[in-house]
Write a protein that binds this DNA or RNA. Sequence first.
DNA 1: CAGAATCCAATAAGATACTG
DNA 2: CAGTATCTTATTGGATTCTG
Lengths: 121, 121
Amino acid sequence: MATSDELRIDAPHRELLDQILDKWSLSVLNELCERPCRFNELRRAIPQVTQKSLTATLRRLERNGVIEREVVSTRPVAVRYRITRLGKTLRPPIDVLLAWAAHHMPAIEHARATFDSASGT
Amino acid sequence: MATSDELRIDAPHRELLDQILDKWSLSVLNELCERPCRFNELRRAIPQVTQKSLTATLRRLERNGVIEREVVSTRPVAVRYRITRLGKTLRPPIDVLLAWAAHHMPAIEHARATFDSASGT
DNA sequence: CAGAATCCAATAAGATACTG
DNA sequence: CAGTATCTTATTGGATTCTG
């Protein structure tokens, strides 16, 4: 039993995971799990991300309640992003995922090579 | 200790997770974890996916070694997709993820509502 | 510093038609 | 049945400029 509907992936769940597991979110969450960061700190920590994409990612994560944005009114302004309590609960799932990736990476690279050579020939 | 580099998300890992956790992969893997499926069975099981996206998703998953494609040469041909041994190891990470989503969905919807009303005003 | 605005190129997604 | 091919249309991503 529990084979058929143990896990239904309905649209809301898919959409949610899409928003939290996208290209840059994992890196951002990973940074913010370690310490609060300012905008340009994050840019430096994740060099490949553009300012535009980083902004979009931060907004999305904030909207979903996993990070929060605090404006420190100095001159010039400082903005500090930090992980929320809800966001912290994401750590175990993400860890499991990264552990999976790290562990199986060799097998996957082998599979890719096999696939590519089979197609390329 | 173990705060700073406990988890580095390097490019290969990010790319890998991108390929396996994308919009349709979770649904496809979920179906194939339960039983082998033919192409059109998958289409019916995941009604929103287009034929084009499903084909792309299946190729990508096959390339990464988590599913395999078997052609049964009847007339007309049948194609059977099934999960591989490697693919089965994805189940626990995915389960953890879906459990997280299911459990925290209410909190997230609340966060979204709060965020949206704060912006909209 | 922390973005918003804009423009443009590249890519992805949808719809349709066709094939072994 | 299980796709491929093609065309068109969003949607994304990068680069650049500007601002409180």
